[in-house]
Design a protein around this nucleic acid. Structure first.
Lengths: 214, 214
DNA sequence: AAAAAAATACCAGAAAACCAGTAGAAGAAA
DNA sequence: TTTCTTCTACTGGTTTTCTGGTATTTTTTT
């Protein structure tokens, strides 16, 4: 038989750590080698110990999980990082993945899901919990803060802005006066409570309101 | 026992249809009620028949799968659409999902994966095949055009633009002249080959280059 | 030490976006 | 029918971005 899987937990919520530990000690193949409440503690540990997989909270007292994930992977490239978080914002999920995470689980994950995701990740697959798949598929559907209610025309204009069209071009495209487009843009800025199109597009993109442009 | 699951196949490749049919007739819970080689044929069928789930090829002779998916869902909102495709472009996957698909499978899917995805989808979950999860997780890896190489300063300015800061504010924030910021913005626009910050932020957001703003 | 890359800074003008306020017409909902 | 929402359009002015140049200093790489 193979040696046990070594697993570490990095999370500053004692309850979560306790819960995870309980679940995982029931699994004879997995050995929880350490629990850490801060990223720097774990980094120190990692320099002298071998870890197969780490369950990493995205929001820690010292620095954010994205940078930490990158650092972990640079120290120990073969480690699997499974992000574990309450945050269901699409951009956070994407950033963790781009920084080398092997998967992303929301903390409402079930015991079965948790273990199967651990094995999937160790197998080189990408592992998502159910809720995360929802987010990736339909970002706009699951967002905490309410998305402004946009009219049909506003959605069209929003999309065109994201495509880089100027007021004049949008007006031609929609067969209306440029002044009308300006009004729509103004209303969009107001609804999203921002002051320029840069933030408008940032938020709209995060909330999955924009089509992907091939 | 419940009634059988009714399943339809829409694909213009006879071999694929044959293969799917073979696999699925082995499953006693699933009843393949129809195979169609064009979208319009299936739409006609759907008007008079009830279908639980449809395996839908994304590229059909008559029109694309995205619009077809939307039409299917508008006729029969409770139907599950599982996109089945050779196309692994991220934008296609995202658009199918945004048009109401319950999942996306690449045609290299295994028999087990296929059936488990069918059950997941019918269960109201989002179903991806392994390869598709890869695509969703690491868009840049499967992307045709490379991400521009940004300098440290450019990344900072990009982030600040996304946060809605004006040139003057960015200058104060980074302790440089506003003219320097303008140069950086200009270089960013050039590197991304766009003409305004709206498209700049759109692309940067799509590629996960921007931090989440609390 | 030389070359390349990155960060800094400037000028001047054109184009576009942003702000504040107003308002008519069409369509949907009460 | 009246009210509400959406879409439309305007005036007039301010701010910011965008364009096309150029150029010095600092840092990194060869």
């Amino acid at each position: 038989m193979n040696r046990k899987i070594t697993l570490a937990i990095v999370d500053d919520h004692p309850i979560v750590v306790q819960g995870l530990q309980m679940i995982l000690t029931n699994n004879s193949e997995i050995n929880v080698t350490g629990c850490f409440t801060s990223g720097s503690d774990f980094i120190e540990f990692l320099k002298n110990n071998e870890v197969d997989i780490v369950l990493l909270d995205v929001m820690l007292p010292d620095g954010n999980g994205m940078d930490l994930c990158k650092e972990i992977k640079s120290i120990s490239p073969n480690i699997c990082v499974l992000a574990l978080s309450n945050h269901s914002e699409r951009s956070i999920v994407m950033q963790m993945l781009q920084n080398g995470a092997s998967g992303y689980l929301l903390k409402n994950v079930s015991v079965q899901e948790l273990t199967s995701c651990i094995y999937d990740a160790l197998n080189g697959e990408v592992a998502f919990s159910k809720a995360v798949k929802e987010i990736l598929a339909r970002p706009s559907a699951n967002d905490l803060k309410g998305i402004p209610q946009l009219t049909k025309r506003e959605k069209e204009v929003l999309q065109l802005i994201a495509e880089g069209k100027t007021t004049a071009l949008m007006a031609k495209h929609l067969f209306v006066s440029p002044l009308t487009i300006e009004t729509h843009r103004r209303n969009l800025l107001q609804k999203f409570e921002v002051k320029n199109v840069a933030s408008l597009i940032k938020i709209a993109a995060d909330q999955g309101l924009l089509k992907f442009i091939g």
